[in-house]
């Protein structure tokens, strides 16, 4: 088997208003050790009250990867921050996240703009995850996010 098939990469980018954590490769059984270390380091390095995880570059996500995402989410939230996921055009990853019902924990949006447009983010300071999620769910219920 070719080694590159097992790669997982993480890049943390500190944007002016939020931390962006970009995931690429396979977040799965084979990459769990490296992924766990990188996700733990990223969680510890977060600077802003909001973390947006960009999963659009993931090629595969399984139950092990979902568990790692949940562990990362719990670290972020326990530090008093809020988290959302963006999927862009990656329908496969969006499908798996929704089947796993992670949309009951955090916003799963098409892009950063949909997250940043939420009302709780218009004021500076800490953001409660429950407040962010409620705003997202309300927005979706109103059909204003454009994603159907």
């Amino acid at each position: 088997m070719e080694q590159h098939r097992f790669l997982f990469e993480l890049e943390r980018i500190a944007k002016p208003a939020y931390d962006c954590v970009v995931l690429t490769g396979r977040l799965a059984y084979h990459t769990q050790l490296a992924a766990e270390q990188k996700l733990a380091a990223a969680a510890a390095a977060v600077e802003h009250p909001l973390v947006i995880v960009d999963t659009s570059g993931l090629q595969f996500l399984d139950s092990t990867g979902l568990a790692l995402l949940v562990r990362f989410f719990k670290r972020v939230v326990s530090a008093g921050r809020a988290m959302a996921i963006v999927v862009r055009e990656n329908a496969m990853i969006e499908k798996i996240l929704l089947i796993a019902k992670l949309d009951r924990l955090l916003p799963i949006a098409a892009d950063e703009q949909q997250v940043l447009a939420l009302a709780p983010l218009s004021s500076p300071g800490p953001i409660e995850q429950a407040v962010l999620l409620e705003a997202w769910q309300q927005r979706r219920a109103e059909g204003r996010d454009g994603s159907g």
């Binding site: 399984d62 139950s63 979902l66 568990a67 949940v70 562990r71 719990k74 798996i96 089947i99 796993a100 019902k101 992670l102 009951r104 924990l105």
Partner: peptide
């Protein structure tokens, strides 16, 4: 069980994912 029952769990999704998929 459903996947909603293991929302915050860090294991135990595999067979539930198969059932959903």
């Amino acid at each position: 069980m459903t996947l909603a029952d293991v929302l915050l769990a860090e294991s135990g999704r595999g067979l539930l994912l198969i059932r959903e998929a």
